[in-house]
Amino acid sequence: MDVPDLSLKGKIAIVTGSSKGIGKKLAEGFAEAGASVVLAARTASKLETTVSEITSRGGKVIAVPTDVTDSTQVSRMVEKALESFGRIDVLVNVAGGAGRDAFIPLLEMEEDKWDSIVDLNLKSVYLCCRAVGRVMTEQKSGSIINFSSGAGTRPVVGETHYGAAKAGVNHFTRVLATEWGRYNIRVNVISPGLIATESAQEWVSSDLFEKFAKAIPLGRAGQPEDILGAALFLASEASAFVSGVIIPVGGGPE
């Protein structure tokens, strides 16, 4: 019997949102696990640090500055990945978030705020999946990991925009897993809970962050490393029969 492992040796992976936080951690971890990595994020300068870190450890990596809400730029990201590596095995859609616009009561929600959050968190997933899916359906293989949030299942006051977009990502994923299973493409979701990234700690006070952490059954906030374990599982052959699932990584039930 072959014992499953989390190796990504020889696999080509695109990671969006990889300039910081969870995306950066996943890009570094995937490279360490043997994957060639395509880094995508808006700010070219921030990607360069990750590129040099991965390269210095002997990993293969390219950076393609990309606004994932722009279909032309997303197509270019896929072209660059193919030019460098010839195929795409894994797509990790980490790009998203709400930053300082996370909590807006609906009566104060301007249309441009609504559009920008829904575009960044839901439309980006559609654009990236479609562009990469053109390659994966040809290859007849691939694993896509979308990022959702507990806010997509549990109502959080002030998060109609973000919560609805993330709930949309969850269901988009289940539909696409059903649609593309015949091409041997798996589509799954990781739904992180409270993770101690710089940006999470930026917009929540440390007292409040501690209070949130204590209420979690496992008694602590998560680290980006905790997300890496789930991402390696879903990207690797260890999950070859797993598709259309939502894996909450939050120290307790969602």
């Binding site: 259309g244 699932v245 894996i247 039930p253």
Partner: peptide, 13 residues
Amino acid sequence: YITGIVLPSDGGP
């Protein structure tokens, strides 16, 4: 960091 989840292993929805 994962607890209280139900992980389907069923080949898709």
